[in-house]
Nucleic acid binder design. Structure first.
Lengths: 332, 332
DNA sequence: CTGTTAGCGCGTTCAC
DNA sequence: GTGAACGCGCTAACAG
């Protein structure tokens, strides 16, 4: 990284003060005569001047960057959130940094970075375990949006979903249509510190409530990618389930394929339900019944963050709840 | 964002100078007596001190961040690159910023940001059109890795693939096995400024070389997501193709599903070939024949960048080529 | 060996 | 239109 020209040099070349250069470069045009303005612009151009982001951030106490904290990359919901946040941030002239938190150590690092003010605020995606309530509290002062049903606003905003209720609805439907051997096709992290994820808790609860068949082999985990989901579904066949509840639509869609490949008829032999309401669920045969929001859209959450970041006074912690429902299509 | 404590305040509380504080906080421990060290640490702890990233970057002329420039989010290859870069950067204590360039305007903004030194270096992913060679040249001085077959190293590193040759191999195979009506299932941007993408160019070339059937309706684009790919494949059915060459494995896999749903037998009636060599291609029926690298892994590219970023002297522009081949499985 | 002084990096903005 | 302070951390040079 070689040295780059500074405002001093531009000022010298244009024969004005650095203050004037700054005013010109920041569009405070009324403070500067047109002739001078041109001279400054010409000088900046000639030297190939670009301002230093670090110096500017230091002086402004603002980085014009926001941070996206996610548990992993390549999950459909993450991708959509990243897209929506990027779009909203971009409109405000803000950049996006991504921090992946997939271990307790990374959680600590993420907190450090945020406290070091690498970004003006952050949005914590759903399904970022490892990030404790205490750690969130230690981020007081950092504009934050937390997408987590268990979180309570405390200087930050919380985006919730009615996931538990919607899952319960789906299980009720399965039970009502006579399913007794309902399998759970989960991801890697369905439990952290012995605490089950929300959808897994909903499953366990439904097994109780409806007196469904239980058995450890009806629960498989690790279906984080399609290949793993395919294998996991195959391994489930030995248990002769009459329904598969998958922790994600991606897993559910793959389960449909695996079941069909095994000659199983859906939903006659086995019902399949996913979570997330991906568009892709519309093109499976049969179309996928799922639990999720009406549409996968995170602009609201992104705007909540930018709102907070751009606000003069930190607004009080807000709660936004996205309604999730059981979206019945053909597979259950 | 309220004011946070500074080294001055820590120094005052610990009754030492700021220099001592800095030495302690940066592990230059031999310069400080153990007792003093403790006092400083205690003071920092008590005040909840965290250093300012902006001030540090300004002083060090280094942000300890790298940038990932991509054309879009949510493409399997992008996700893998993001994961690998995040991992490699993290090992070096570096963070990752993402810039999405999906229009000429965004390309300009990306260049500005990079020149403003928001990051210490950047990796430009494959398939980022809109970023011109001239713009890359204007980034002289910014450590850069460009993943693009058309690029020539010029102060930056280039990562190439043997995509054209591998695609040609696939087309040769299709022709040799008697396919005449080969459809092209492309993405949105198969042409920018009238210049076809590499895989599309390979298709056009193969049509010529082998005298395959041609016709605008054998080419469809916009198959960027699975739903679009499904629809696009259905629309192709009217053309009675005997092979589908998809610009990505994701599109190809979806094409297999769409074809099977339409009662078409693969590969007997229609052969299908994708690009990318996703693991997912192993679980389709039949398994997907594809064009791509032996495995989707971008650690090398990531390391090339960190190498360059961490180097004292900028190394000369290097070229790394990843061998792509036609991976024949069951679908063609 | 331990600790301090002082200046630097660079853009922004208030008071004149 | 300008001078100068300021945001904050790092480190060379120096004193004890």
């Amino acid at each position: 990284m070689q040295r780059r020209p500074t405002t001093r040099e531009v000022a010298a070349l244009a024969e004005v003060s650095v203050a004037t250069v700054s005013y010109v470069l920041n569009g405070k045009e009324h403070r500067v005569a047109e002739r001078t303005r041109r001279r400054v612009l010409a000088a900046a151009e000639e030297l190939g001047y670009v301002r230093s982001s670090a110096a500017r951030s230091l002086r402004l106490r603002r980085t014009e960057r926001v941070c996206l904290v996610v548990g992993s990359i390549g999950v459909p919901a993450h991708d959509q959130l990243a897209r929506d946040l990027t779009e909203v941030a971009d409109e405000a002239g803000y950049g996006v940094m991504t921090i992946v938190v997939d271990s307790p150590a990374r959680a600590g690092k993420a907190v450090d970075l945020l406290r070091q003010h690498v970004a003006d605020g952050a949005i914590v995606a759903p399904l970022v375990p490892f990030l404790s309530a205490g750690q969130l509290r230690s981020l007081a002062g950092v504009p934050l949006v937390v997408m987590n049903n268990a979180a309570t606003p405390d200087g930050f905003d919380v985006v919730r979903t009615t996931e538990s209720a919607a899952c319960a609805e789906a299980f009720d439907h399965l039970a009502a249509t006579g399913r007794r051997r309902v399998a759970f096709l989960g991801h890697r992290l369905e439990q952290v510190d012995g605490r089950p994820s929300e959808r897994y808790a909903a499953y366990l609860d439904a097994v109780d409530r409806h007196g469904l068949d239980r058995g450890p082999s009806l629960v498989v985990t690790g279906a984080d990618d399609r290949v793993a989901a395919y294998e996991a579904t195959r391994s489930l066949l030995a248990e002769a389930p009459d329904a598969v509840f998958a922790a994600s639509d991606r897993a559910a869609i793959t389960a449909i394929l695996a079941l069909r490949d095994a000659g199983v008829s859906i939903p006659d032999d086995v019902a399949v339900v996913g979570v997330g309401n991906l568009d892709e669920g519309r093109i499976t045969r049969p179309p996928l019944s799922t639990v999720g929001p009406p549409a996968m859209d995170f602009h609201d959450a992104a705007r909540l963050l930018l709102d907070r970041v751009l606000a003069d006074e930190p607004p009080p912690g807000r709660v936004v709840t996205t309604e999730w429902t059981f979206v019945r299509r053909g597979s259950a």
